[in-house]
Amino acid sequence: MRLKVLTCLVAVAALYAPQASAGSKIRVETRTYDVTGASGIELIQNINRKGPKRGFMAHAIALTAYSASWDLVMLRRNGSCRVRQANGTMDLVFTFPRVVSPMSPALKRRWSRFMAGTHAHEATHGRLARDMMRAAERSAVGLETTDDPSCSKARREAGRRIEAVSAQYEAKQKAFDVTEHRGGGHVEHLVLALIKP
């Protein structure tokens, strides 16, 4: 499961100033929430009560949330404006369940397999978010506008391009979740493997 939290645009103007290429930065944080249970069914029931919210009522097993902000470095010359750099910063937060009650050796093995699959699922969401940042940066850098001494047209167009890329990757995130969460899909197999006696 993934959650896109925020995308905002911040502009920084520069006049003939040489800039080192900073590029996008990804800050990653991993959080956990505690679950208990002596069986796979009890663990899933606890996850269903305590897992991160995905909407108003439903709880996810795990969650990937991200927010992105952008600093645009502009180069102004003779009334034109060019986006010299699009430096994005993404906060990428993974949330996973953590068992805090004793487990039998058999349940511990099943939990380890369950969590390996859960981590793989969320890692795909994280990869798509990182890919989005790179694609958004490429979409904005080099953009040039004429008759734009204040760079307002360039900022608007760069923001539009970044949002378009974000929407494209958000669609990829949703398509991935639809495939993974469908009946008989990867997530169902993980859950069934955990709760089998």
Score class of each variant (00 low, 15 high):
residue 42 E to L: 09
residue 106 A to D: 14
residue 57 M to K: 05
residue 99 V to G: 02
residue 195 I to H: 10
residue 149 P to I: 12
residue 36 T to Q: 15
residue 131 D to K: 05
residue 55 G to F: 04
residue 138 R to N: 08
residue 135 A to H: 01
residue 179 T to L: 07
residue 184 G to N: 10
residue 150 S to T: 14
residue 186 H to S: 15
residue 63 L to I: 03
residue 134 R to L: 15
residue 2 R to V: 06
residue 81 C to A: 07
residue 63 L to W: 00
residue 85 Q to E: 12
residue 124 T to H: 08
residue 68 A to R: 01
residue 46 N to T: 11
residue 142 G to L: 11
residue 42 E to T: 02
residue 155 R to K: 04
residue 77 R to M: 12
residue 8 C to F: 12
residue 132 M to T: 03
residue 120 A to V: 00
residue 102 P to Q: 04
residue 88 G to L: 07
residue 118 T to V: 14
residue 28 V to C: 14
residue 83 V to W: 00
residue 194 L to E: 09
residue 51 G to S: 06
residue 108 K to Y: 00
residue 53 K to T: 08
residue 128 L to N: 05
residue 22 A to F: 05
residue 71 D to A: 10
residue 51 G to H: 08
residue 44 I to E: 07
residue 86 A to P: 02
residue 27 R to T: 14
residue 1 M to T: 00
residue 81 C to H: 04
residue 124 T to E: 04
residue 60 A to W: 02
residue 91 D to Y: 11
residue 97 P to E: 06
residue 129 A to Q: 01
residue 99 V to L: 03
residue 20 A to N: 09
residue 137 E to I: 13
residue 101 S to Y: 09
residue 175 A to Q: 14
residue 183 G to Q: 12
residue 177 D to R: 01
residue 65 A to L: 04
residue 84 R to G: 02
residue 193 A to D: 15
residue 71 D to H: 10
residue 121 H to G: 07
residue 176 F to I: 00
residue 151 C to L: 11
residue 100 V to M: 04
residue 15 L to K: 11
residue 158 A to Q: 11
residue 3 L to N: 04
residue 146 T to N: 12
residue 31 R to Y: 09
residue 165 V to Q: 06
residue 78 N to M: 11
residue 89 T to S: 04
residue 51 G to I: 03
residue 72 L to V: 05
residue 67 S to R: 08
residue 184 G to V: 08
residue 88 G to A: 08
residue 188 E to N: 06
residue 5 V to E: 07
residue 77 R to W: 09
residue 148 D to A: 05
residue 114 F to R: 07
residue 53 K to M: 10
residue 56 F to D: 14
residue 149 P to G: 10
residue 72 L to D: 01
residue 78 N to R: 13
residue 42 E to K: 09
residue 105 P to T: 13
residue 101 S to L: 11
residue 82 R to I: 03
residue 47 I to Q: 04
residue 190 L to S: 02
residue 133 M to R: 03
residue 22 A to N: 04
residue 165 V to W: 07
residue 132 M to N: 05
residue 61 I to G: 11
residue 129 A to K: 00
residue 60 A to N: 09
residue 64 T to C: 06
residue 173 Q to C: 00
residue 106 A to N: 08
residue 155 R to A: 05
residue 24 S to C: 04
residue 31 R to A: 12
residue 25 K to S: 13
residue 98 R to L: 11
residue 14 A to K: 04
residue 100 V to S: 04
residue 132 M to Q: 05
residue 44 I to T: 02
residue 119 H to N: 14
residue 192 L to E: 12
residue 170 E to V: 09
residue 4 K to A: 13
residue 14 A to D: 10
residue 38 A to E: 07
residue 13 A to I: 15
residue 47 I to P: 03
residue 137 E to F: 02
residue 134 R to S: 15
residue 8 C to S: 13
residue 134 R to M: 13
residue 103 M to G: 07
residue 75 L to M: 02
residue 75 L to G: 01
residue 192 L to Q: 12
residue 40 G to R: 05
residue 109 R to H: 11
residue 69 S to V: 01
residue 159 G to L: 10
residue 104 S to V: 06
residue 28 V to K: 15
residue 9 L to W: 15
residue 142 G to K: 09
residue 47 I to T: 03
residue 78 N to C: 09
residue 158 A to I: 02
residue 3 L to V: 08
residue 171 A to G: 13
residue 114 F to M: 06
residue 72 L to T: 03
residue 194 L to H: 10
residue 76 R to L: 08
residue 45 Q to N: 15
residue 2 R to Y: 11
residue 18 P to L: 06
residue 45 Q to E: 15
residue 132 M to W: 14
residue 34 D to P: 12
residue 124 T to D: 03
residue 4 K to P: 07
residue 108 K to M: 02
residue 61 I to N: 15
